[in-house]
Amino acid sequence: MTSAPLARRFLLLLACLAAGIVVVSRPLEARAEEGATGETPGSAQPTAPSDSAAIAAAMAASDSALAEARAPGRVARANAVSRFEFGAAMPEGYFDWLATAGYRHRLLTDARFEHWLEVDAMYGKKRYLSEGSAGVAWFFRPLALWHPEWRFRPVVEAGVGGTIVVQFADIEGFNDWSSHARAYVKSHAVAGFETELTGRWGIAVRGRFTVPASRPLDYAQVVLFLR
């Protein structure tokens, strides 16, 4: 490798780090938490809510009732903290399909993003070759693009993850097999849609892209998710 691409890669790394530090160090906007009581330690006498607080509470209740009337329970279900996913994927590469299982957990929500932790496992087989993989990824979902009140909700996420892939080869015609494992760290962008099927089950269709790999499309996936 020549020095120019190395220098360019180093500069890109520095720029990425600098941009990340700026983003992380910006103070987050305070977000009101549901169920906050506002009590202070040591206050023996409960105080009556002020008029403005009562009006705000009534408006919030009205909004909530309206949203519930439009889409009963949908918002609450869409904002569930965690869910399991079972599905199939058509990956870029040698394999035609992969069976997938995953668990997603919302770690936190800040002023701009929901932060999701995803743990997934995949299995595929084609001719003599079998593959199993396990991965952990951290995804950022922009709140501006997330609409839990919609029946068909677009899902746009980006993140970084590590994956361990183990492949097993059957040596055809001989009493032998061979195995090989590799570990990857990759950045991902995910785009797709999801919708509810029942109160607990839903379906999601999405594509996961790897940036900036030479073969960037990782897979197109359809999953049933269970809350």
């Binding site: 890669r9 590469g93 593959e131 993989s133 990857y184 900036p212």
Partner: peptide, 12 residues
């Protein structure tokens, strides 16, 4: 991950 560790397909 963005800069240099994504050189080949995972499922190849």
């Amino acid at each position: 991950a963005l800069v240099g560790c994504s050189s080949d397909a995972i499922h190849g």
